[in-house]
Amino acid sequence: MKYLTSTALALAMSAGAAAADGDLVIYHWFEYMPQELLDKFTSETGINVTMDTYDSNEAMLASLKAGGMGTYDVAVPGDYMVKIMVGEGLLDTIGADELANKGNIAAEWADPSFDPGRQHSIPYQWGSTAFAVDTDAYSGDINTTDILFNTPDALKGKINVLDSQGEVLAMAALHMGIPQCSTDRDQLKALNDMLQAAKGDWASFNSDTAKEVLVSGDAAAGMIYDGFSAKAREEKASITYAFPKEGYVVWMDNVVLLKDAPNRENAITFMDFLLEPENIAQVSNYARYGLGVTGAEAYLDPELATLPESNPPADAGEGAFIEVCDEATQAVYDQIWTNLKK
């Protein structure tokens, strides 16, 4: 009985606190934010958190443009999408002294090309996108984009690529050694032809199940994010992440402050919360990606420092962000993608 009363009391108190401190509505990737961290935020601040999820940067942009603005306080777009959202006028500016923990941002992530001076965003997680190979199925050299675009016989018909134009076309550009936003007609035609030929060896275009198709053996090699690949390796030890010598895609997800945020102040509180090394380390421990604040080493799972998926070998190619093309150039890339899937 005593327990019951105290529980009721605690419930009443927390309800009261929540009502006083308001809400926070997050628009976030799926399977990316540990629930315990959100619970911790709520218990520290009394702010109730609601989270909706999306499965691609483009899907998030579409839903925000189709009337989602004014619903959410923060979203977590990737690097190139931050730049696009700034261009679309969807982001609010964070005042110079609004974030108490802004100084925690690591120097190399404090002034990124996609958001100079971090006016709209804070770092969340970063990592790379390349591909993983089941080394039980293929024993040759995996650190080359030939795996995807000039597939060795052992892997033919066993390749999964992400169902995502940006990542596939960026990898293809790295494979051919051409710019991501090329305007050279011969290069673009060659890119189109190369992809048409490569597709014959691909089994599927899956993003949400990129990890699962590798673990289940539906695919013997597949494009994947490094953290997902680490999780796949935990389930099947022969899945090895590749760092192709031609280069690979680097990405960073960022927490952005949306324009017309209904709970702007709480959004700032949340961003400060995520800039605490202890908190953001919890995300890294869960998602197996890198973070962008200093002083988090003590809180990180020691295994992360030696994770093969986030520590490129010395002979790896260079990482490149996905670039944002202008409208006329993008139209050609859209056409190439349609040709690939027609």
Partner: peptide
């Protein structure tokens, strides 16, 4: 088509979906 067919080729449904949710944004 997406889950069982591997989404290798557009169907009407996925073609339309791509115009709103995909990169094309058309």
């Amino acid at each position: 088509p997406d889950l069982l067919g591997g989404a290798r080729n557009f169907m009407i449904g996925s073609l339309i979906e791509e115009q709103f949710k995909g990169n094309a944004g058309n």
